[in-house]
Simulated assay, not measured.
Amino acid sequence: MTGAEPHVARNYAPLPVTIASADGAWVTDADGRRYLDMLAGYSALNFGHRNPTLVGAAKDQLDRATLTSRAFRSDQLEPFAAALAELCKKDLVLPMNTGAEAVETGIKVARAWGYRVKRIPENRAKIIVAAGNFHGRTTTIVSFSDDADARDDFGPFMPGFVTVPFGDADALAEAIDDETAAVMIEPIQGEAGVVIPPEGYLKRVREITRERGVLFIADEIQSGLGRTGETFACAREGVVPDMYLLGKALGGGIVPVSAVVANDDVLGVIHPGEHGSTFGGNPLAAAVGHAVVDMLATGHWQERARALGEHLGEKLDALVGEGVTAVRIAGLWAGIDIDPSVGTGREISEKLMARGVLVKDTHGQTIRLAPPLTIRATELDWAVEQLEIVLKS
């Protein structure tokens, strides 16, 4: 039963599969057919569908309290914030719900820091971003997007953003001036097709921002929390930004949880009444988020992503020249460029779905793989075998 959704607004074009249940790396549709989930909710399900530890944390909290609003304290928020701050090696956590909210919050904090600490003249603060970025689809965020689908017909746009090429540290340095408050980048661009910058780029960004007195904001909403084989993708180059933007996997695929994490000299610029969220940091979200942080603190999931990613990379590299033009992989996260003579990314995704593998296309010719970190090597092998069959067909 694939079924259309006549009463759902058409802001997505999903693959024609209707999922009714899920467990681990597998989902089952309404007709009982099973599929291997190689997308994992764009990394929101890093720990698999219905992870027992995370479901247990949610069930325990559901029996106690789910929402207090931030008008009152809850017994879950401070323990969660303390654990997340420790994971990030930072002082403070500002909890929100969605990734886009974390980005919006990061922008507000950076501007406040620019005015209150750096003393940028009023309404002149600028934030440097990278071409090809994807930070969300709010009206502020699409103001600095170069994706026509996200941007066209949604103006007028918010000023205060400067775009430079992704991976070009010299262009970034050239764009910084006395009115620059921050540089905000994805360490790896996920929506763009798992685009990995040149080696040394993140280190140069860190050096440049420190030398020039601007904040380095890392959007780790997709790349963070174990996906790339490190807790954060920035750690692949030993880099610690001034501010982390987190989301997706932080909620364990159960509830939306996001956060801005930074030291007190940055996040401390926000005062009561200047920013908030009724649901941000609610007890249920905090309980689940705390369980996620505890899982990551062991290092097990990061190591698993590294090992499985190496295994997957070897399998995918063998397909280059066999219907695949390029493979980019970081941990258990891959972008695969499909030869146009074979088909579009959407066509390959649909053919894989027919063979029991769920992936998603992006930018026409690319498919992305971001399976749960719970997946087995044999399951990865089977998925690549299905891709090879589809490419040859």
Rank of each mutant, 00 (worst) to 15 (best):
A370N: 09
L308C: 14
E379T: 00
V324L: 00
E322H: 15
E314P: 08
A286T: 06
A383K: 02
A291T: 12
I270C: 08
E388H: 11
I348G: 08
S277C: 02
M353I: 04
G281I: 03
G364N: 11
K315C: 07
H271S: 14
L387R: 00
T344A: 04
T298P: 03
V288N: 06
A307M: 13
T325N: 01
V292W: 02
K360V: 11
A297N: 13
Q386A: 04
L369T: 02
P372Y: 07
E322R: 15
G273F: 10
A318K: 09
L308R: 06
I348Q: 05
G343L: 01
R328E: 08
A318L: 09
H363D: 13
V342Q: 09
G299R: 14
E310F: 10
L358I: 09
P272D: 05
V288P: 00
G309N: 13
L387G: 01
V359Y: 03
I389Y: 13
V384I: 12
L387W: 11
A287D: 09
T344K: 01
K360S: 13
A285R: 11
L358F: 09
L332V: 08
R304T: 15
A287K: 15
I329K: 15
A370Y: 05
P372L: 03
T374W: 09
T278M: 14
V288A: 07
G280I: 01
A334N: 00
L373S: 10
A334D: 07
V384P: 05
E322V: 06
A383T: 04
Q386R: 15
L369Y: 01
I338V: 06
R376M: 02
Q386Y: 07
G364T: 08
H290G: 10
V266Q: 10
V390F: 08
S277I: 03
